[in-house]
Design a protein around this nucleic acid. Sequence first.
DNA 1: GGTAATAGTATCCAATTGGATAGTATACCA
DNA 2: TGGTATACTATCCAATTGGATACTATTACC
Lengths: 126, 126
Amino acid sequence: MFNIESFECPIMATIAMISDKWKILIIYRLCNGTMRFNELMRSLQGITQRVLTQQLRELEADGLVSRKIYPEVPPRVEYSLTKVGRTLLPVLEKLEEWARKHSGELIAARNKATAQLEKLKNRVKA
Amino acid sequence: MFNIESFECPIMATIAMISDKWKILIIYRLCNGTMRFNELMRSLQGITQRVLTQQLRELEADGLVSRKIYPEVPPRVEYSLTKVGRTLLPVLEKLEEWARKHSGELIAARNKATAQLEKLKNRVKA
DNA sequence: GGTAATAGTATCCAATTGGATAGTATACCA
DNA sequence: TGGTATACTATCCAATTGGATACTATTACC
């Protein structure tokens, strides 16, 4: 979690805000509209309650998500993307565009690296 | 380190490629041109040799950085951004643009969260 | 012969992240 | 009365990340 202004690179601050494992998925779930905690829990297969709470709190602290508590029992809490959170979506789309455009090259590079690692492992065995 | 195609979200794969602590800084050092290992070491204050090696190898495996070994003694290895690595720069600029444009709101949200945390801490003390 | 440079590797460790599991107070329902 | 739902908190743990430190082989230089 980086401070935007006190760090030389606002890019790293932005990436730090969204790079924890579930944050992009949470943001995308919320871009369809308001959701409650257990709705998010159910839609994010594999996440635990502790991690969902933690990452929602951090997204709220970063100003990307808002949290509205209704004074009811049992508790009703609604999570939404903030206005600022919504402005991040086109930027994430640029990341996706880039990844799709270059997926061939990226996969080729990955395969090459994997092959070289296998080669090295076999050499160490011999 | 995510696999682009096997994961539902290429955005997360891209972020995974660049979110380790030093990777953005390495990319930006290399966008000015080829550098050698110790040049990078010296220009990245605080990094250790083990971490620089590791993160360079990962950037190479991801196809963003190329590594050229000259058969010399002492060893001469040159690191450069690949063509694909260079295409990432405008995307990173979009992230920076977004962060600068919304820095006021992001800082306000952070301050609000910090204030609420202090309030909670004081309440627990009482 | 000692020192420095090169680009790492090896080993250990502290801190962090994400996961697993159990528990919470109240209302509702069969 | 017990089960379920809600939105968490609490505690513990395994895995990962980044850092610290020492070492490596060879050459060049003084």
